[in-house]
Amino acid sequence: LEARLEQANLLKKVVDAIKDLVQDCNFDCNDSGIALQAMDNSHVALVSMMLKAESFSPFRCDRNIALGINLSSLMKVLRCAQNEDILTLKADDAPDVVNLVFESSESDRLSEYDIKLMDIDQEHLGIPETEYSATISMPAAEFQRICRDLIALSESVAIEATKEGVKFSCSGDIGNGAVTLRSHTNVEKPELNVDIALSEPVALTFSLKYLVNFCKASGLSGTVKLCLSSEVPLLVEYTLASNSYLRFYLAPKIGD
C-alpha cells in the first residue's frame, strides 16, 4: 500500500471523530480505497468510513490488506502532523507496521512514524440497501447544536419527519424541548439549506449520547444527511470530497 493524502488534516479529523466510539479497527485496503467498519462496544452504533482511491494522489494497493490499528495510537501519531502536511501511508504485503510520512509543503521537514499493527477479529455486518422514508440534509453545525441543546434535558430524542418539517423533541426531568426545522432554501448561503425529502412520515427515538458523539464529525463537512425509516437504524452521513464518506448508523429505541 502507498497512499498519499494532500492534507493530513483529513485523516486526523476522521480519526478524531470516531476514536471515542470505536477503539481498535481494521483499515481494509484494496484498489478501491481504504474502508473501515466498526461497531461500538454496546453494538448500538456503527461507523462506516470509505476513503476512495480518488481521495489520494497517488493511490496504489497491490494486494488486499487489513491494517489493524488502535485509534488512540493512530491519533497520537497524527497529532505529530501539521494540518497542512502531506501524509503518505505505506504498508508491506504482510505488514507488522504501518508507516506514516508527513511532509511539509512549505519547509523541507519530513517526519516518519511507524505504528505497530494488531490482529483484530472484527465482526463485519451486512448493511442492507435501504430506501429511506425520509432524507434530511441540513447544516452539520445546526444538527450538532440541536443534539447538544437537547441532551441537556434528556437522554433521548424523538425525530419526527412529516411534510411540515422535521421535529426533534425530548422530555426529561426538568421539562420538555423541541426544535422544528422546515425545508429552507437560502440562495445567498446554500450551506444553510435544509432539505427534507419524504416518501412517508416517520418518527423514531434515539439516544442523544450517540448522536452527540457522531457530531464530532461536523468539522469534516458543512452538511449532514439524516436518513430515517420506521424501525431501522438511523443513518447519519458526512460526505467528503471524491465520493468518500463517513457514515454512522444508530439503532433506534423501540417499544414501550
Binding site: H43, V44, L46, L125, P128, P233, K253, I254, D256
Partner: peptide, 14 residues
C-alpha cells in the same frame, strides 16, 4: 420507556 435496540437486530452477518 422504549428500549435501546442493538444493530444485530437489523444488520446481518454476511
Amino acid at each position: 420507556p422504549p428500549k435501546q435496540a442493538t444493530l444485530g437486530k437489523f444488520f446481518g452477518t454476511p
